[in-house]
Structures are given as structure tokens and as C-alpha cells.
Nucleic acid binder design. Structure first.
Lengths: 246, 246
DNA sequence: ACCTGAACACCGTTCAAGT
DNA sequence: ACCTGAACACCGTTCAAGT
């Protein structure tokens, strides 16, 4: 451990989180009141109210009655701020009480992850900035993995299942929040668009799904979660309805 | 339909695609050679080589030996360009031959969608800019939905299944490409990070998954896809192994 | 009609100078 | 030691002037 290693770790990486924690503990700020916590709170309020593009360093500084340079005392870059915001939001996940059974734990955590991200949907594109190694992300991983193991899945199933599940939850959040929020032409606006193509193209999209009510994004999420968990139990649990080894 | 409706539709929406197609047909460019196609090709090459941040209007103009203002003859904004790039990349999906059975079609298309997006991983964050209503996206939806119906699922299952599947594929792509590309602490770098927390916190993450080989991102994708499709068949097809009605 | 140089109104970030 | 005004090197986009 060198005394002054100025080379910056990539924001969001494990070493970045470690270095950041050390640096934060070492600070002795003046009594002017500016702190990382205040910055994060103000930034989140701004993102929620006006969108991610409105979060500029200058605008945030204005909101906090300082100059933009002052923010760089607490946060090394805009990307670092986004990493902090994402983990802050993950902290809003409500964990199920101890003793909740395995599958219910997984379902609650999946729904909660989706809920908090949808509550702060303007922040969602920031999830692509970095991997998720913040303390709140780690807690979610710990609990989610525990739920799958408790449900009876062996570790070599629980680990990929956990990762696939997170991919699915985050995928739904991404595409339910991307601009107008409907993926791939399955929406009611599409008819005039299809009319611009030759009559025999996209026969299915023209016919469907008018005879089927288009599911809401929440329905799609619930459907996908239930189907994935059922597939998991069908493939890897000895028999339905009874829990595996603990 | 008014003669001159100058109010711009939101890039990527059905009406935007329609208006764009009309405008492109109406153009009569000079012989200088600049065209939307050349712009898109140059932009994709730039993104692939140097990343999405390197795609600035000025830099792209330089690459094409013009001034930045000239690009605005063909593309109304940087966001419009991103929309065009995404649908262009979706055009690289190789569709299975006619006569391929339902489940195989769904598997091939899922793998292809993942493949082309991973091939242009620098473009992935641009997927959040808008919904997917381009001609290539529509074709994918048409074929994917057809595959699920052909596999024997009724429309009220095939539609949410299709949407959930796209969410999953895109979710994996997002998080396999986000910076260092590992989600939620399940990576080998994490040990020193965990050491910074109290010894009884994250017991599971400390112990796991050293006794289990950490799956690759491709393994997680294959695992999730197989599990979801198995769950779908288990829940909604009368018996395993035999196709439903067609 | 089509094209574009030059300007406008911003950005994130740095650094020398202040306390 | 901590803080910050002012500057640097960029952005996307517009528009009047040119052909």
C-alpha cells in the first residue's frame, strides 16, 4: 500500500469502492456543510424531477449554492456521482424478514429491485456506467443467492440462476423505461407504420395481438419471473412442492 | 395529413420512422456523395473502433471530410443517428431458414440478437435512447412471435413470452458490456472489498463461489434461455416433447 | 434547392490563486 | 489544508450567407 497512489481506479470497481471509503474517512471538511451525502441527495432529486440530462455539474452546483469546482472536492467526476446514485437507490430495496422461505425471498427481492429502479426511472441509463459493487448491491447479491440456496438449488445452479435473474429484472427495467417504453413494435401505435410496408410483410404483426389484450409491462415482468422460477424448479428440484436440502 | 408539419416526432417512434422514410424519398442530393448510408457506416465504424463517446458530430464530420453542419442535412440530431445505428446493427441478425421448427427458431433468434449486439458492444448504451420500431426490429418481432406460435403456445402466452425473452436477451447484453462487465459482486476481484466489511457480513459471498467455478457470461445466457423456455413448455404445453397445435 | 462557415449556448474538468 | 473563480478544451445545434 503506497502512500500516494494517485492513479484513479475505474469508478464502480471493487478497488474504487475501497479507495473511496478510505478517502471519505480521511476527510476533515470545514463547517460549510457540503458533503457527499448532500450532493447525492440533491443530484437524485434533480434526476427524479428533470431527468438524467439535467444533471450537469454546473446545474447541481447551482442547486447547492456553490461553484462547479467545489463539487470536485467530494466527487472526482460526473461518472463517480452516477455510481454513487445507483448504489444509493439500491439502498431503497426493502429486504424480506428473516425466516421468509427461499422462493418467496427471491420473488420479493426481484420485485423490489424492479420497484426501486422504476421509482427512479430517469436514473436507469446510468446503470450501464459501471458494474454493481456498492455495499447495497453486495447486500442484494448476498440475500438473493441465499434465497436460491435456501430454495434447495445447489450452488452450481444458484449462481447462474441468480445472475440470469438479475439480467432479466434489469432488462425489463431498461426497456420499460426507454423513451416511450415499448419494445419491438408490439404496441397499438404500430398500424400506420406497418401500412407503409408491402401488404404481405409482417402479416403476424398486422393480425396480432388485436385478438389478445396487449400485456402491461408489469404483466410481462410477472410472467417472465414466474416462468423462469418454474423452469428452475422443474429442471433442478427433485419434486415440485417440497423443498430440497437446506 | 398536413402539408408542412414541422413539429418533429420523437426519434425512434413509429411516426418518426414514417416521416423519415417519406423525407428520405423526397430528397434529391447533389453529386457530392454524402448520404445517410455513408454517415451510418462511418458512425458505426467509429463507435466500434473508439467507443460511443468518440462519436461526436464534429468528429464524424471530420471522418467524412465535411463540416459538422453538413451532417444535419441528413440527420436531425445525434439521437436520430443513434436510432439509425441500432436498427442497422439489428439488420445483421441472421434469420433461420424457413421450415425451422418453433423452439429452434426462438433459440436461434435469441442467440443472434445477443451475438450482433455483443459484436457492437460499444453501441449497447444507445439501446436506451428509444424503443425499437425500425424495419429490422419489426422483422425480428414478426419472426420471433411466429416461432413461439409455431412452437404451440397460444397468442396470450406467446406475446408476453416474446417480450420477456427480449427483456432477458437485452438485459444480459447490457450487463455483460457495462464497463468491467460483471454484475453484483460475483467476480474474483471482490475479496479485498469484502475484507473491508465486518467479518460476519456477506458470509455467503465470502464463501461462494470458490467451490463453484464462476460461470462465464455466455454460460449464464445459455442457462437463462434454456430455463425460461423449459418453464414455458412446462407451464403451457400439454406434454413435453410433442408439439402443440399448428 | 442545397450546402456550410462561423457563431451560440452550453458541457466536464483543471489549476492557480485565495483563505 | 481546504476551497473556488476563471479559464481550457471541448460539445450539439443553428442560421445567415454563400452557391
Amino acid at each position: 500500500m503506497r502512500a500516494t497512489d494517485v492513479t484513479a481506479a475505474v469508478p464502480g470497481s471493487p478497488t474504487w469502492w475501497l479507495e473511496r471509503q478510505a478517502r471519505e474517512a480521511r476527510r476533515r471538511p470545514r463547517a460549510d456543510g457540503l458533503s457527499t451525502e448532500r450532493i447525492v441527495d440533491a443530484a437524485l432529486a434533480l434526476v427524479d424531477a428533470e431527468g438524467l440530462d439535467a444533471l450537469t455539474v454546473r446545474r447541481l452546483a447551482e442547486e447547492l449554492h456553490t461553484g462547479s469546482a467545489s463539487l470536485y472536492r467530494h466527487v472526482a467526476s460526473r461518472d463517480e456521482l452516477l455510481v454513487l446514485l445507483v448504489d444509493h437507490v439500491l439502498g431503497e430495496v426493502r429486504h424480506p424478514p428473516d425466516g421468509t422461505d427461499g422462493r418467496a425471498t427471491v420473488e420479493v427481492l426481484s420485485n423490489e429491485l424492479r420497484r426501486v429502479l422504476m421509482d427512479h426511472h430517469n436514473l436507469v441509463p446510468a446503470l450501464t456506467v459501471s458494474p454493481l459493487f456498492g455495499p447495497n448491491a453486495l447486500l442484494g447479491t448476498e440475500r438473493g443467492l441465499a434465497g436460491l440456496l435456501d430454495a434447495g438449488f445447489p450452488p452450481d445452479v444458484a449462481v447462474p440462476a441468480y445472475l440470469a435473474l438479475v439480467d432479466f429484472v434489469l432488462g425489463t427495467v431498461f426497456f420499460d423505461t426507454s423513451s416511450t417504453g415499448q419494445v419491438s413494435g408490439l404496441t397499438h401505435e404500430r398500424h400506420e407504420l406497418l401500412a407503409a410496408f408491402p401488404a404481405d410483410a409482417f402479416a403476424l404483426l398486422r393480425a396480432r395481438p388485436d385478438d389478445v389484450s396487449l400485456p402491461s409491462v408489469d404483466d410481462v415482468f410477472a410472467f417472465g419471473l414466474a416462468t423462469f422460477l418454474d423452469g428452475l424448479e422443474h429442471r433442478f428440484l427433485p419434486s415440485d412442492g417440497t423443498a430440497g436440502p437446506r
